[in-house]
């Protein structure tokens, strides 16, 4: 297991696109905290209500889920690269099992999910310390369930990236189709074609609307305590199931395909 992760990190760390994309991700994570006042303003709330404990976990993860699109595109790149450079083929010729090639990517996804969750937790704790009203300083990890929700969302999104990269092989094509799937297709299916409510747990809806929901009642009530203080078990379960499904299909494709 550790050997597979070492192989993946050996390939990843010198990769310049990785450095750039990860830096952009970190920058967005910090910028959100720095620009938090403006965000609170647009919602008609005070910075303490959005960036203070415990609501910060709901709002921060809500936006951080969108930043994960960058990490997903990174996974599409490194998966597609293995096909365009024909290195997946070479890895197997050198003695790696087909299953191991997918395992290695899944291990990398888990590692990146852990890292991004740690980044979110640390910067959220710091942001909360800065913005919280004194009375709320002790409520640091209330609503911390959203942190776990973000972890599941990270896993699921990157697993989706693995699936798109594996299926389409060419990075450019895979990224474009992923983005189309992310916005128009899912919205059209949900709003236009499927009967009301039945598309609520489509992958994209699950990852962007269900696991970390927008705290509508909090905004509408101008700062009354929001009712949702953690992701629902159903949304976490469905989100995790999709992560397994995407990785599983990628594994099946890799197993069957002539390289």
């Amino acid at each position: 297991m550790l050997r597979l992760l070492r192989i993946e990190l050996l390939k990843l760390i010198p990769y310049r696109t990785f450095k750039i994309l990860f830096l952009i991700y970190l920058l967005l994570m910090v910028l959100w905290l720095v620009g938090g006042k403006g965000i609170a303003n647009t919602l008609g709330l005070t910075p303490e209500q959005v960036l203070g404990y415990p609501n910060i976990w709901n709002y921060y993860t809500l936006y951080a889920c969108y930043f994960n699109i960058i990490l997903t595109i990174l996974i599409i790149f490194i998966t597609g690269n293995e096909y365009t450079y024909r290195t997946l083929r070479q890895n197997i010729i050198d003695g790696l099992q087909r299953t191991e090639t997918v395992q290695a990517k899944v291990l990398l996804i888990i590692t990146l999910s852990i890292i991004s969750t740690i980044v979110l937790t640390i910067s959220g704790v710091i942001g909360g310390l800065i913005y919280s009203a004194d009375a709320d300083k002790g409520r640091m990890l209330e609503h911390g369930g959203f942190i776990f929700g973000y972890f599941i969302q990270s896993l699921g999104m990157m697993s989706m990236g693995l699936f798109f990269g594996t299926l389409f092989k060419r990075t450019g094509l895979a990224v474009i189709i992923f983005l189309i799937f992310l916005f128009p297709v899912d919205v059209i299916l949900r709003a236009g074609i499927l009967p009301d409510g039945s598309g609520d747990y489509m992958p994209v809806a699950t990852y962007f609307l269900k696991i970390v929901p927008f705290p509508l009642d909090h905004v509408m009530s101008h700062g009354e305590e929001p009712t949702a203080s953690a992701p629902t078990m159903l949304s976490l379960g469905v989100g995790f199931a999709y992560a397994v499904l995407f990785a599983g299909i990628s594994w099946m494709i890799t197993k069957k395909r002539d390289l």
Binding site: L10, P14, Y85, R86, R89, Q90
Partner: peptide, 9 residues
Amino acid sequence: QPNFYPYLT
């Protein structure tokens, strides 16, 4: 055709 990661040494 030799296959390598072009960005690795």
